[in-house]
């Protein structure tokens, strides 16, 4: 499949989703479907799907202890071992996982040395992917947390703090959130990277572009709704609280942009269990990261270990006994 075809397919799919929502709400007037039924269905798919996938992984055993050692392992007491890159305690493993999950430790290793003028080699880290990844995930998280104001009747206090930090510069009214900017910038970078770098273009599938476009669409519709086509937040919260109290209502007067936003989010939620976005759960289960490098000091059991056909010493000696005796090698029989 041609790379550009992949981009095109994914883009068409997301545009189709946007049009579908617009058509459904504006022309046919299916507000209760787009405002209530689809979000509920999407949530259930997400909820059940994610649990199903993780339990699916959990059912498969890890037969061998195969940590990747990213540093000196624990051996003799006077040799300095790397506590988090080749951990030998549970705490070490937890720290390694925390660094991995919270700071993208492995991606950060992506140091690329560069030759500057002159004979000396200097090493500069080119960690743009890491940076974009961090920005993307953390701004996404901030945005989700900020949305908690629509999810709880009494808004938790951290949400206000988060929002005030996020809107620190007070640009525009309503304040433009830094996380929104970072989010859109990161999504754009991640997309451009895929199309500009030939090797990235080569490995990318429609399944890589689709979530990017979908997430980008969610971000754009959200920002538009906040800054351009404003909606009545009281009604928005009326609707969202309707979901969470199981008393769904569809208030009149919410703009189409809101339904587009909600529909795209629903699509994302429903898509996650079937997609690579499951890496958010999978990263915790990766056997090369979440196992301690205590291979030689602690027993590890393979639940399906089975006996195999081996060549025993007796068979071996039977074959070579005479020669062994001749060569003066001790033998068991005779």
């Amino acid at each position: 499949m041609n790379a550009w075809f992949s981009v095109f397919t994914a883009l068409v799919a997301v545009i189709a989703l946007v049009l579908l929502a617009m058509l459904g709400v504006e022309t046919i007037g299916l507000k209760s479907i787009f405002g209530v039924i689809i979000p509920y269905v999407a949530f259930v798919i997400f909820f059940v799907g994610v649990a199903y996938r993780i339990i699916g992984w959990a059912k498969v055993p890890v037969p061998f202890r195969i940590p990747t050692t990213g540093g000196q392992g624990k051996s003799l007491p006077w040799i300095k071992a790397s506590y988090t890159d080749a951990p030998w305690t549970t705490l070490g493993v937890i720290l390694r996982m925390a660094l991995e999950v919270l700071l993208f430790r492995s991606l950060f290793r992506n140091t690329k040395a560069e030759v500057r003028e002159g004979p000396r080699i200097t090493y500069a880290s080119a960690q743009w992917l890491w940076l974009a990844g961090i920005l993307f995930h953390y701004s996404f998280l901030t945005i989700i947390l900020r949305h908690a104001r629509f999810f709880f009747e009494n808004v938790p206090s951290f949400v206000e703090m988060l929002s005030s930090v996020d809107g620190f510069f007070q640009i525009l009214v309503p304040t433009l959130f830094l996380s929104d900017l970072a989010f859109l910038a990161a999504v754009t970078y991640l997309f451009l990277r895929r199309v500009v770098l030939p090797q990235m273009r080569y490995i990318s599938l429609p399944a890589d572009y689709f979530p990017l476009f979908l997430i980008g669409g969610i971000g754009i519709s959200g920002v538009l709704m906040r800054q351009v086509w404003k909606v009545d937040l009281l009604k928005v919260k009326e609707l969202t609280m309707g979901w969470f109290t199981f008393h769904p209502v569809v208030p009149e007067g919410l703009g189409t942009i809101f339904y587009v936003h909600v529909f795209l989010v629903s699509c994302l939620l429903a898509y996650i269990p079937f997609s690579k976005i499951m890496h958010m759960g999978g990263v915790f289960l990766s056997p090369t990261r979440n196992l301690a490098n205590v291979n030689r000091s602690e027993r590890y059991v393979n639940p399906w270990n089975y006996p195999v056909k081996v060549h025993t010493y007796d068979e071996y000696e039977d074959e070579f006994r005479e020669k062994m005796k001749e060569a003066g090698i001790p033998v068991d029989k005779e």
């Binding site: 909820f47 339990i55 890890v62 393979n302 639940p303």
Partner: peptide
């Protein structure tokens, strides 16, 4: 080895947050 306990705890925390 499965580590089922740990995974189930993780899944429960995640679902509870949801």
């Amino acid at each position: 080895m499965y580590d089922k306990g740990k995974i189930i705890i993780g899944v429960i925390i995640f679902l509870a947050l949801l």
